[in-house]
Design a binder for these strands. Structure first.
Lengths: 148, 148
DNA sequence: CTTGACCTTCCAGTTGCTGGAAGCCCTAGG
DNA sequence: CCTAGGGCTTCCAGCAACTGGAAGGTCAAG
């Protein structure tokens, strides 16, 4: 089938499917006219990708999962390990976002939000004139808000 | 002061500071030797950026906040509006991640994780052979896991 | 005088796509 | 037979927000 059909069946835009091919996640055949030709197993692979991506796995993790999926001698522990790492990451992200939310909620709560110019949000962002100290413990732990 | 000092005081890597200049967030002076020369107010601006970025505001939002910060005729409602939008976004992201976490947790829980090849995680990712349906309602609502 | 730390610029890469241009293929309608 | 349209192809560029590295200038200490 053509890429349009594959796209509909896999719930992935055609552009994304071509991109996945580019980075070596699948290699569909070609029809005589040069069009990509997707088999049911290609579509299956695409669906697998769509599901695992939507669960928050990175493309590289999806690649690993796919290769485990295709490996009949795999050990389920390998898969579980990947999923557990991902789970821990998600936990970390949630905690980070929650702390962000509390700070921001506090700021928003304290801002009267009217036509007057004084604003505790800006005051907080501007900060007290203390020395630097750069947030947490060591400075090597640069973790920007989130990086999906 | 040189960029190294400004970097230490603002808790931002020098590269990032130069980048912020590139995109027009500040314009420090230059010493005779061509080195950038940061005033205390530049550093203040950088700290402001560091804080607002770490609170999850995008660079464009930071730009707005900075301009509001510099505008003595601003209305605090404008600032509050930006913060509230951001707060809603954070809420949404948290909810999304929590739902992801539940799904993944469930999968991990059901995988025995040993040397045998059978794995419910992969089974789930592979999916039942039902028709497409692409998740939610209309297909235009493409919202990949998260995009910070 | 040399070494090393610091600064400069510019270019490229990251992640995961997405948009667009230029051009071929195929089918249906007039 | 010609044309219009839709779908397909390739390639190139760009998004956010940096980060890394190369090639080279500057400066203070030994």
């Amino acid at each position: 089938m053509n890429i349009g059909d594959a796209s509909e069946r896999s719930c992935l835009p055609a552009k994304t499917i071509r991109y996945y091919e580019d980075i070596g996640l699948l290699k569909p055949g070609r029809s005589e006219n040069g069009y990509r030709d997707y088999s049911m197993s290609d579509v299956h692979r695409l669906k697998f990708l769509q599901r695992s991506r939507s669960l928050g796995f990175s493309v590289e993790e999806c690649r690993q999962l796919l290769s485990l999926y295709g490996d009949t001698h795999r050990e389920s522990a390998d898969v579980k390990a990947i999923a557990e790492v991902k789970l821990a990451e998600i936990d970390r992200k949630i905690a980070e976002l929650e702390s962000l939310r509390e700070t921001l909620r506090h700021l928003v709560h304290n801002c009267h939000g009217d036509a007057r110019p004084d604003c505790p949000i800006l005051d907080e962002l501007a900060g007290e004139q203390g020395p630097a100290s750069c947030g947490g413990s060591a400075s090597h732990d640069k973790s920007p808000p989130s990086k999906h």
